[in-house]
Amino acid sequence: MTLGLNNFYVSYNNKLILQDINLAFQEKTVSAIVGPSGCGKTTLLRSINRTAELESGFRCNGEIMLYSVNIYQTKDVGSIRRRIGLVFQQPVALPMSITENVIFGVRYCGEKNKNCLQEINEQCLRRVALWNEVKDKLKRPARELSGGQLQRLSIARAIAVRPDVLLLDEPCSSLDPASTHMIEDLLVDLAQELTIIIVTHNLIQAKRIAQETVFMLDGQVVEKGPTEIMFSNPDKNETRDYFF
């Protein structure tokens, strides 16, 4: 088990958003979290990445274990956030070149060696199948890329700091089918090295790429299981209602 949540609760300004979350994510798998809008999926991801606490009124209870580390008892928040990367729904292009975007986090960590940075850059861009498209314009501003390319760039930036877990919050919701397909292939490929958790509204997407699927409703986990079973013969009636 890479990542585990035990009796995890989150509230904002005393309003309960997540309650009693108990989940375990296996190493080097893709897990999908599905559920209706407002059920707390994004809050869950942000809590795992420890950025949920940046909004005022945040309080949490319970534990999230990354291997043997309780991430809410670690002083070095930055390193936790790097070990558990997060890719947003809307891809963000930092106002700098493509290369600088990819190595942003690595540079922050103190890597100064030019060759090393260049190598990381190429490696990560190849990893997200973007290298061939951008290798001649690495110095161009990243905002010139298309939406699909930008989302892949975001993934490259997140994996450049070598995380153990990669969280994605509806990464394909604003992309065309071709780009969506590309990202799905990419995630399956990345799962050979990383633990991937993806929030998605697209049930077909969950079915295509995830080994395990989690169904959430009203801030609670209703059911979690192997994707085939969740989609063919789920236990709970709520899941059935939502999936069929």
């Binding site: 930055g78 922050y108 700091v161």
Partner: peptide, 23 residues
């Protein structure tokens, strides 16, 4: 300045000071 930059910086574990100076 686009607040998403700040969120992105935070999610990458980048300090606020660095984010401020660089972006």
């Amino acid at each position: 300045v686009d607040n998403n930059y700040r969120w992105l910086g935070a999610s990458l574990g980048v300090s606020r000071g660095y984010m401020f100076l660089r972006v």
